[in-house]
Design a protein around this nucleic acid. Sequence first.
RNA 1: GCUCGCUUAGCUCAGGCGGUAGAGCACUUCAUUGGUAAUGAAGAGGUCCCCGGUUCAACUCCGGGAGUGAGCACCA
Length: 639
Amino acid sequence: MPQITLPDGSTRQYDQPVTVAGVAESIGPGLAKAALAGRVDGELVDTSYTIDTDVKLSIVTDRDADGVEVIRHSCAHLMAQAVQRLFPDAQVTIGPVIENGFFYDFSFERPFTPEDLAAIETTMEEIVKEDLQVERSILSREEAVELFEKMGEKYKVEIIESIPGDEDLSFYRQGDFIDLCRGPHVPSTGKFKAFKLTKVAGAYWRGDSNNEMLQRIYGTAWPSKKDLKLYLQRLEEAEKRDHRKLGKQLGLFHMAEEAPGSVFWHPKGWRLFLNLLEYMRGRQEQADYIEVNTPDVMDRSLWETSGHWFNYRENMFTTQTEDERIFALKPMNCPGSVSMFAQGLKSYRDLPLRMAEFGKVHRYEPSGALHGLMRVRHFTQDDAHIYCTEDQMEQECMDVVTLVLDIYKDFGFEEVVIKLSTRPEKRIGSDEIWDKLEGALLNSLTSMNLDYVLYPGEGAFYGPKLEFVLRDAIGRDWQCGTLQVDMNLPERFDIAYVDENGDRHKRPVMLHRALFGSLERFIGILIEHYEGKFPTWLAPQQVAVLNITDKQGTYCTQVEESLKNKGFRAISDLRNEKIGFKIRELTLQKIPYLLIVGDKEVASRKVAVRTREGTDLGAMSLDAFCGHLQRDVSNYGRT
RNA sequence: GCUCGCUUAGCUCAGGCGGUAGAGCACUUCAUUGGUAAUGAAGAGGUCCCCGGUUCAACUCCGGGAGUGAGCACCA
């Protein structure tokens, strides 16, 4: 006699066990049709699931996120079924749900082509029309292995064998297709309304580059055609923000074949770069950092001491000189910083010592990893190393976290996710030290009441780390800042300070932190975040002064000079072109303010102000405009 | 590094069963001095990514390489 409580608090009584579909039907035919799955006491189940005790139930439809996930997961099965109908030799492996869609990996003798994709989509549509029932069944491990061996699905056999324990396994069958799966799935293949296969790519079996490469097909699926269309539009919008495209259009930088993964900064891009650097320098000075500079090329022995030679040798740029010494371009700033710390005797009175460096680092990244400014081989870190006592370590961590979160706000990044990565397998130092270090990061987060996501085993080889992931204007996540605590490098380099008792061998703790992370990457993120419309304080060019005819040229130049003298970045455009043409060009360059000057403005000693959004702020005196500009600049990018 | 695709004028891109190529914008010159997103005309501009091979002939076909794009793997 199950009594079922629905989400609205109402209850329903049934004389005998009832399925989720049965409940939906008893509520109404519309819901029965819309039901994709059920949530029974918090657990997602199929609509065919039978309820025989008192439970809380919600019927899952495509109006909730769970329902959309079920659609996507089932759509992966639908695609696999279509692939096997068209290509019986293709073996299935796995097909999970991902953000906005799904993929399925197949083992097949050749890569799939775009024509194959079209054919697969057509076959998927046919299977939707067939409206096949999706049936769940349970098999024992032995039966399952036997079944897949008979079908020649060796990857499935491998998956089953790797599932621990000896519990029974659930299977889903739709027509001639059966797959091992936890479920739940849609009740029938007629439920799909909008899907599209988006791309093909290679992917390693089990995500291991030592294994063979499988053929992966990506797809996206939505509750309605309209949702699918909106999604595809969003992709197009994102493409318009692509920093590589905007970087070219706005004349910020270029890359060349001779220097793969390295940036040629053009004047405007470099201005942006310097703006960020000067901003960070100011913030660090306020926070009692000192700034230093260390060599780019250093002897191999230094990297052996640091452990980088052992861990990352194949990703380092090296050079051998005539006398056969091997040098490496620094892939990190820490050994240089440690060497700086080791100069002269340090006292406990010097600690905490916050030593910053805008260090250019070179890493020989795998060619396939390179991506515009986001992943380069030559980049600049806003790096700093904080040397402190064990007692100071937690407070220093908290100060760094406070600083980084505040800095991100100046760019309009309010949503920041903190990742905590702990000791990896490949590491140096004792477990006791790792306990202390992980404890310090954890404690500083908890005492600041900050949420975090744990990434076990993802730390650096010398210490655990926090990573700051920010969400941009269109909801994409980017990892930028990092904070690592480290007692291992100080040990390896044998650095010390003198404590209050005159002990000359006290070991400092070392914090590694970068807040932008890589200046190059951060600029890439900003370009996409702002769609090239940098807030005024950052914009490489803040104001352009345009004359309508040659007659106002002198006045325009005076205005430009006057703005420059006040510290604003101004240009003038005195070309013999129509005013509409100049406005169009400079607006496309996304300059925040255009000052239009004709005879009227010259006569009244004013400027007519137009924003890049096309708003006419009217004519005003230059002083009034400077006031406006100053207020805009001092707001940074805060929202 | 792996899989698949791409590489033609400064930029965005057409093009052709193998017979050395074209548009728009930008550039130069001339005319035009025009009030809030494109004034008109003329001119100039190319080793069709690189190296080999096949061919009477290769930008086009074949092989190798580089760069780049989407994924995968990697990211101190």
